[in-house]
Design a protein around this nucleic acid. Structure first.
Length: 176
DNA sequence: ACGATGATGAAC
DNA sequence: TTCATCATCGTA
């Protein structure tokens, strides 16, 4: 079972898409070949009300893709050295996105993009096979009870209410 | 605990 | 045009 995720999957609220992305595979194709990585950690950033979201301060050159159709990549540069990979979610015009924070064997959003060779070059491109970066359902099912929900990382500036939202989703470690 | 390192956005 | 800040990471 191998299905490339498209518009229908991403055209839902970020808080719904984020946990649903756990167990899906981020697939990267480069001249060196193709590699699939199971997503293990994701964070939701909702529309303009979410003070932790880049979209909360309105549309700018950087976040413009968030205001467009779902299923496109939003890649931005932060702290002078890290590229962050997000996928745009929700209806066209409703700015929201999911930050991919980790895959199997790679923990941390900055490490993820570095290891897969992802940069702002991918910003605004659709998540599809044609762009060399897409997401597949390969039949792995993650139960709700396997998902840990925590507040998002590094968003204290957003204020108590928004910083506390349990919108970070992580696949729990399986105890052997 | 802290410095790296540069784009971003808001203030001036 | 300046300046504080930043959805982080590696080294200590």
């Amino acid at each position: 079972m191998r299905k490339i995720l498209g518009h229908v999957f991403f055209a839902r609220p970020a808080t719904v898409v984020a946990p649903d992305l756990l167990g899906k595979f981020l697939v990267r194709r480069t001249p060196d070949g193709e590699a699939a990585h199971m997503i293990t950690e994701a964070e939701a950033y909702e529309g303009h009300d979410d003070r932790a979201s880049h979209a909360s301060r309105g549309r700018t050159a950087r976040n413009a893709v968030m205001f467009g159709p779902p299923g496109r990549w939003y890649v931005y540069f932060v702290y002078g050295m890290h590229e962050m990979l997000n996928v745009v979610t929700g209806a066209d015009g409703c700015p929201s996105a999911v930050l991919l924070r980790g895959v199997e064997g790679i923990v941390g959003p900055g490490r993820l993009t570095k290891r897969l060779g992802i940069s702002r070059t991918e910003n605004t491109l659709p998540a599809s096979k044609a762009t060399g970066l897409w997401i597949e359902d390969r039949g792995v099912r993650i139960m709700m009870r396997q998902i840990e929900k925590t507040p998002r990382v590094g968003v204290a500036y957003a204020g108590e209410e928004w910083a506390a939202k349990p919108w970070r989703f992580v696949v729990k470690k399986v105890i052997p």
